[in-house]
Design a protein around this nucleic acid. Structure first.
Length: 420
RNA sequence: GGAGGGGUGGCAGAGCGGUUGAAUGCGCUUGUCUUGAAAACAAGUAUGUCCGUAAGGGCAUCGCAGGUUCGAAUCCUGUCCCCUCCGCCA
C-alpha cells in the first residue's frame, strides 16, 4: 500500500510515478476524500472529548447524571454515531482506491510500458545459438516426465515427474536451499501453503489478483502463488526489535497459480503450469540498504546459474513491466536450447516499504526511538520446473542421455540419466 | 467433532460499570551515591491518529467486530486465536 500521508504531501510526485507504470491514479479524488476524512475526525473528536469530560466529572463527583446531562449526552452520542458512519464511508472509498494502487517505481527503473522496454543488464558467457530437443520430447523419451498422466489426474498444465526426473528436481531444490542457508546466510522456513485473506492482502495479491489464486470457500483460505506471500507475513503486525534486521529467509514451497491471464501461452511442456516448486529468498532490511541488497540477491541467484553451467542473462524490468508490489525488479533468464528461447527462472524485487505498510510490519532502529517501516525484498532462487528444463535440455548428449551438472551429483547420487 | 478454561503494556500479573492508558513486580533508560561496578534511592519507559512551525493538546487502542449505557478493560452477542481433557487421525 502507498502511504496516504505521502500522497497528500506530494501528490504530483505520486501521479508522475504511477503514470510511468501506465496507471491513471485518481489522485484528486484521494486528496478530496482525505480532507473530508480529516474534517470528520475532528468533528468526532470534539464530541467525544465533550462526552469524556462530562462522564469523568460524574465519576469524580460520585453522583448520578442529571436528566439534562443524560439528554444532552444522548444527543452527543447520536451525533458521534452519525459522523462515524460518514467517516466509515469515506474510509471505505479511500481503501477501495488506494489498496489497488501499485508501488511506485524507483528513479533508475527504465521507462516503458511493456517487456519490449526491459533492459539487458548483462549476459553470461555461453552459447545462445545452441538448439536441441525440447524437454517435452526428451522427458517422456527418458521416462522421467509424464505429461499425459498430469493431464489425466488434474487436467491441462499439470505434470508428473518420475524416477530420476523427480529425483533431479528434488536434488536441485535441496542444493539451492543448502547454498542459500550455508553460504548466503538465509534461515530456512517451511511455511503454510494455505493462508488467510489478510496475509494475501499484506503481500499485495489481494484484492487485485484474486482471479489468479486458488481459494477454498469453506475455510476462506487461499493457496499461495509463491512463498513470498507467507514469508512476507512472518512478522505481520510486529515491531522488530533493535539490532535484529536484516532478516533473511529462504523457503522451498509449491506455488499455485490459475494462469488465466496467460491462457494460450507456453502451453507445451512444463514451462507454465498451475503448480510448481520454487525456492524463494526473502529479506527484511533497513531502508537505506535495500538498493545494495537487491543487487546482492541478484548475485545470489546468478551464482546458482553459474554453478550449473547455464547460459543466462539479467534483465532490468521497465516501469510498466514490474510487478504490482515492486519498486524495482531484475529478471534472470536461462537459455533453453529446446524451445530456443530465454526462460525466466527468477524475478528479484525490492518492494520498498509497500508490503511492510500493508502488513503493519515495523522495526525499531534503536531503543527509545520511534518505529520505521522496513523494506522487503523477494526473489526466486530459483524456480524449479524451468531450471529442470534447462538442466535437461543443456545436458542432453548425442546418444540421448543427460549429463547432470557436477554440483548436483552429491544430491542425485548419479551423474547421468540414461536412455531407456 | 464433544466438554471446559483463557486472551490486559517488552515480560509476568492485578483490575466492585465511573479521576484506569491501566495497580504491582521484572526488564530497560537516565540521574543521585561510588575510584568503578553492584546495591539502594529518584525519575522515566506502548502504539496509532488528528490539530499545531513548535511547545503542547484532543481522540482511539486491554485479541477482533458489533451492542447496551450519560459512561465499558469490566455487562451482552458474534468471531478469531491459545490451552486442558475426550474422540478421531498422518
Amino acid at each position: 500500500m502507498l502511504s496516504l500521508e505521502q500522497i497528500v504531501r506530494d501528490p504530483d510526485k505520486f501521479r508522475a510515478a504511477l503514470v510511468r507504470r501506465g496507471e491513471n491514479p485518481p489522485i484528486d479524488r484521494i486528496l478530496e476524500l482525505d480532507s473530508s476524512r480529516k474534517a470528520l475526525i475532528q468533528q468526532r473528536d470534539v464530541d467525544r472529548a465533550e462526552r469524556n469530560t462530562v462522564s469523568r466529572a460524574i465519576g469524580e463527583e460520585k453522583r448520578k447524571p442529571t436528566p439534562d446531562e443524560i439528554v444532552e449526552m444522548r444527543e452527543t452520542g447520536d451525533r458521534i454515531k452519525a459522523v462515524e458512519s460518514d467517516l466509515e464511508g469515506v474510509q471505505a472509498e479511500l481503501d477501495a482506491i488506494v489498496l489497488p494502487l501499485p508501488n511506485t517505481p524507483l528513479a533508475d527503473v527504465p521507462d516503458g510500458l511493456d517487456a519490449k522496454s526491459n533492459v539487458i543488464v548483462r549476459t553470461s558467457d555461453g552459447a545462445t545459438d545452441r538448439y536441441g530437443s525440447a524437454h517435452w520430447d526428451i522427458g517422456p523419451a527418458l521416462g522421467i516426465l509424464d505429461l499425459e498422466a498430469g493431464a489425466s489426474i488434474s487436467g491441462a498444465r499439470f505434470y508428473v515427474m518420475k524416477g530420476k526426473g523427480a529425483r533431479l528436481q528434488r536434488a536441485l531444490a535441496a542444493w539451492m536451499l543448502d547454498v542459500h542457508t550455508e553460504e548466503h546466510g538465509y534461515t530456512e522456513i517451511d511455511p503454510p501453503l494455505l493462508v488467510r485473506p489478510e496475509t494475501m492482502q499484506g503481500s499485495g495479491n489481494l484484492p487485485k489478483f484474486a482471479d489468479n489464486l486458488y481459494h477454498d470457500d469453506e475455510t476462506n483460505l487461499w493457496l499461495i502463488p509463491t512463498a513470498e506471500v507467507a514469508l512476507n507475513a512472518l512478522h505481520q503486525g510486529q515491531i522488530i526489535d533493535p539490532g535484529v534486521l536484516p532478516l533473511k529467509y529462504v523457503a522451498q514451497t509449491p506455488s499455485f497459480r490459475k494462469e488465466h491471464a496467460a491462457a494460450g501461452r507456453d502451453v507445451r511442456g512444463i514451462k507454465r503450469v498451475h503448480q510448481f516448486e520454487k525456492v524463494e529468498m526473502f529479506r527484511f532490511v533497513e531502508p537505506e540498504t535495500s538498493d545494495a541488497v537487491l543487487e546482492e540477491m541478484v548475485g545470489e541467484a546468478e551464482t546458482l546459474c553459474k554453478r550449473l553451467g547455464l547460459t543466462y542473462r539479467v534483465l532490468k524490468l521497465c516501469a510498466g513491466d514490474i510487478g504490482f508490489q515492486s519498486a524495482k525488479t531484475y529478471d534472470i533468464e536461462v537459455w533453453s536450447p529446446g524451445s530456443a528461447e530465454w526462460l525466466e527462472v527468477s524475478s528479484i524485487s525490492t518492494c520498498t516499504d509497500f508490503q511492510a505498510r500493508r502488513n503493519n510490519t515495523r522495526y525499531r532502529p534503536e531503543a527509545g526511538v520511534s518505529t520505521r517501516l522496513p523494506h522487503t525484498l523477494n526473489g526466486s532462487g530459483l524456480a524449479l520446473p524451468r531450471m529442470w528444463i534447462a538442466v535437461i535440455e543443456n545436458g542432453l548428449q548425442e546418444d540421448g542421455s543427460i549429463v547432470v551438472p557436477e554440483v548436483l551429483v552429491p544430491y542425485t547420487g548419479w551423474a547421468r540419466i540414461e536412455t531407456l
